[in-house]
Design a protein around this nucleic acid. Structure first.
Lengths: 205, 205
DNA sequence: CGGTTATGTTGACATCGTCAACAGACTCGC
DNA sequence: GCGAGTCTGTTGACGATGTCAACATAACCG
């Protein structure tokens, strides 16, 4: 990078590619992202991106991984704070998750295997997703200690919670929810049911 | 259709296209389905499909809609039976949902917007998905009457349950669950938490 | 300053979805 | 029974796409 910031040949093309791809995804969906179109928008040639990413899939994986990072940061910000966090804080984490998805539908969709992308052969994506999951586990453990929810296997409980908010977000994004339904009320109902279930003293059987 | 069953020029090409596309999806993913490849496998030319579907997207939509139909049939089969159905039957509906997704991962993925497909401008798909949802509402109402779960807005409750099982199925299919975790136990934990939450007498606030 | 590496461009190719033009096969009214 | 019209399927062609090889240029480092 050159001192003046607009460096090299183009500047920081790698970062520009990531930002532009993310912008295009939320503007017109993943299918609108082509190597040629992104080059056009950035004023570089069609195959410039190949100096920074092995192929198109690698670029999309990087965008998706960045999405997991951003989401984790947001959940961390909500989940932290006052240590003896009560049930309301836990609920807010769930609502924040769904909110992120609704604010970045194209991006969120990409994160969850919209392409042939979400695969074990993409370690970068797995790690970003696992980092998000680790944060969920941490939040669950915090609230187990403070007594907000039952003490069970925190991994299982985190997966259950993840599935619930992810499923709701997915249904909302894909337009599967009838328009007559109030989305906010549905989100609250989901978090309520989930938290009630996690507080129930029953054995998992 | 001709009397001998192998009719017209090819036979029932429309049905063959649907079946072949579904097979290819579960063999090698949606990206492996090309109009030319499907024609090759069926021994017809590349654009034969255009006599039966407006474009590739229409073909995929039809496949996805058929998936919703099959899934609804399976849930209906499990959800019916003894009328005074108890909590175990309700749990089995949830497990059957996840099982369907795990058995047909490519197909299931297609049903939930993998392409630019799951859109309001595809009424056929919306109707099939709504029919599935209607079945879920019916099952919820049955168990509300028999006292298995709390009486709340059955639509909201059906959405909550749908989101929970769909989210879990999605995480499992996309390989987001650590291999160390026992999938069956996770499925049971999810249905337990969900049902506990739906039984809780708390107000949705 | 000269060479090595990093970055970007152009040309080319196979593949894809799709349309227009064409051809064969079935159907139905006379 | 036969010809017109309609279904169904094929071939040729076009533009767009992902990607690679060959080339060009800018930065860096001794």
């Amino acid at each position: 990078m050159t001192p003046d910031g607009s460096a090299y040949h183009h500047g920081d093309l790698r970062a520009a590619l990531l930002a532009e791809a993310a912008a295009m995804i939320d503007e017109a969906g993943t299918s609108s992202v082509t190597m040629r179109a992104i080059g056009r928008r950035l004023g570089v040639s069609r195959s410039a991106a190949y100096r920074h990413f092995a192929d198109k899939s690698a670029l999309l994986v990087a965008v998706a991984a960045a999405g997991f990072d951003r989401l984790r940061d947001r959940l961390e910000a909500v989940g932290a704070g006052a240590p003896g966090a009560g049930i309301e804080r836990l609920r807010q984490v769930g609502e924040e998750y769904v909110r992120f998805a609704l604010e970045n539908p194209g991006h969120y969709r990409l994160m969850y295997g919209k392409e042939a992308v979400t695969r074990e052969d993409r370690p970068e994506l797995r790690e970003a997703a696992n980092a998000l999951f680790d944060e969920l586990v941490r939040i669950v453990q915090t609230h187990q200690r403070s007594g907000t929810i039952e003490r069970r296997d925190p991994h299982l409980q985190a997966y259950v919670a993840w599935g619930a908010v992810h499923g709701l977000a997915s249904l909302l994004i894909e337009g599967q929810i009838l328009t007559a339904v109030d989305a906010d009320e549905l989100i609250r109902q989901t978090t309520s049911t989930l938290l009630d279930g996690m507080r129930a003293g029953r054995r998992p059987t």
